[in-house]
């Protein structure tokens, strides 16, 4: 609305500016981390439902629990749980990255690149370590 004008009538809804989308950006590791953060978040949403299923099965008795843990212990079940583990550790590491940004730190391109790679590496290494422990202790038998 121009300054000094007396305006009346209904509010004018202008077309809002749109942010440039994926196709105009050159690939960048921080972009990958951002996309992975969302994807792993959805993965954990599904993981929380798997955990809910576990609680229901446990409350339903030994037979239901055996059936459910049998499902989780199948090859596909283990693959899903390994993916869930990767999701947990990536979202956790990248979440810490976000919390550091909230304090105004870590925005230098080199820092942001390095922490993005670090979050991805941590996710894979931590998940492999957890599953190695599970195999060694018989938790993933």
């Amino acid at each position: 609305m121009a300054e000094g004008k007396v305006d009346a009538g209904p509010p004018v809804v202008r077309a809002r500016p749109m942010a440039p989308h994926l196709q105009v950006w050159r690939w960048h590791v921080t972009m990958t981390a951002s996309i992975l953060h969302r994807a792993t978040g959805v993965g954990m949403y599904l993981g929380a439902l798997i955990l809910t299923g576990w609680a229901i099965a446990l409350a339903s008795g030994p037979d239901a629990y055996a059936a459910y843990t049998g499902l989780l212990g199948s090859p596909i079940g283990k693959l899903v749980l390994f993916g869930f583990t990767v999701c947990i550790f990536f979202h956790m590491a990248n979440g810490v990255r976000h919390l550091v940004w909230d304090f105004g730190k870590g925005f230098l391109p080199k820092t942001a690149d390095a922490t993005a790679v670090a979050a991805m590496a941590f996710a894979v290494v931590a998940a492999v370590v957890v599953w190695a422990i599970a195999l060694l202790t018989g938790a993933a038998a």
């Binding site: 629990y65 055996a66 956790m92 202790t137 018989g138």
Partner: peptide, 23 residues
């Protein structure tokens, strides 16, 4: 998020304990 940072570490550690414990 801050709460989940600790709760999930506890959760993963607990899952390793409970997974082999049976019903």
């Amino acid at each position: 998020a801050a709460a989940l940072l600790f709760l999930l570490l506890w959760g993963v550690w607990s899952a390793l304990t409970v997974a082999s414990a049976g019903y």
